[in-house]
């Protein structure tokens, strides 16, 4: 079998991707692309091949070979929405195997720079969303927030709020991916729409009043003589405005 120059397909999870990359490197096969099953669109030119994992301890295998910081970086990059993240990770891991100790210093390699750029972007967006997320209070005491981040940051974001509001009940909805973080009675779960549907979601009596109060504060705290909307947009890009109460009408 002539296995180089194939598009490799993996089954949508990080474990499967790690296995696919491991398998390719072991066989010295060079992919033209690696695509998740969900995103794969067949074309007439390229041949595709689906890899299926038969190993249980793929994390351990990689950890032993490249160390946990590299594996942590890979986990973060996997959360990104970058269309070529799999191929970038393939090259990154290929070089990490050769230089496990100095891989992060190799800024002359394109894949290292790409990986670090994506990793930074995911971290930055997580950090930004810790500030930009807006909860609305429901009659049943639940706090409910919607968001549409570029990257899949729901997991680390939810843990952030569990740490600071352990006694609350809240839902965070990633609208584009349609997944929910659901926290109540000190338990955090990641669930699908059907389980949220059971909740009675009506605004609490104070909710609209608090939103008005927040808008008042937001408008008052700006110094008119220093107005600088470019600067405001740089720090708080328009793509985040949709759910920001203070930027609404």
């Amino acid at each position: 079998m002539k296995a180089s120059n194939f598009i490799y397909i993996y089954e949508d999870s990080l474990e499967e991707l790690l296995y696919t990359i491991y398998y390719l490197i072991q066989n010295r096969w060079k992919p033209i692309d690696i695509v998740s099953e969900r995103n794969f669109v067949p074309n007439l030119v390229d041949e595709s091949f689906k890899v299926k994992s038969n190993l249980l301890n793929i994390y351990e295998i990689w950890k032993e070979r490249v160390g946990s910081p590299v594996l942590q970086t890979v986990k973060t990059v996997f959360l990104s929405s970058h269309p070529k993240k799999e191929l970038i990770l393939y090259y990154f891991l290929l070089h990490a195997l050769k230089n496990p100790k100095t891989i992060y210093q190799h800024r002359d390699l394109k894949c290292v720079n790409e990986v670090l750029k994506i990793e930074k972007y995911v971290h930055r967006e997580t950090h930004k969303m810790k500030g930009f997320l807006r909860f609305k209070e429901m009659k049943n005491g639940f706090l409910y927030a919607k968001m549409e981040p570029e990257n899949c940051i729901l997991f680390s974001l939810a843990y952030h709020f569990v740490r600071r509001m352990p006694n609350e009940s809240f839902v965070i909805h990633d609208v584009k991916r349609n997944i929910y973080a659901f926290y109540t009675e000190k338990k955090l779960n990641f669930v699908e729409e059907s389980q949220i549907k059971k909740l009675d979601l009506i605004f609490s009596d104070e909710e609209l009043e608090m939103e008005k109060l927040w808008k008042t504060f937001f408008d008052t705290i700006a110094i008119q003589e220093r107005e600088n909307k470019n600067c405001q947009r740089n720090f708080m890009p328009k793509k985040y405005w949709k759910y920001l109460i203070e930027m609404g009408p």
Binding site: F218, A222, N228, C231, M236
Partner: peptide
């Protein structure tokens, strides 16, 4: 309720940036 965040968190940006 609440906890510190060592790096600080910006929650919004007013019209003056």
């Amino acid at each position: 309720l609440g906890a510190g965040a060592i790096s600080g968190i910006c929650h919004s940006f007013s019209n003056d940036g």
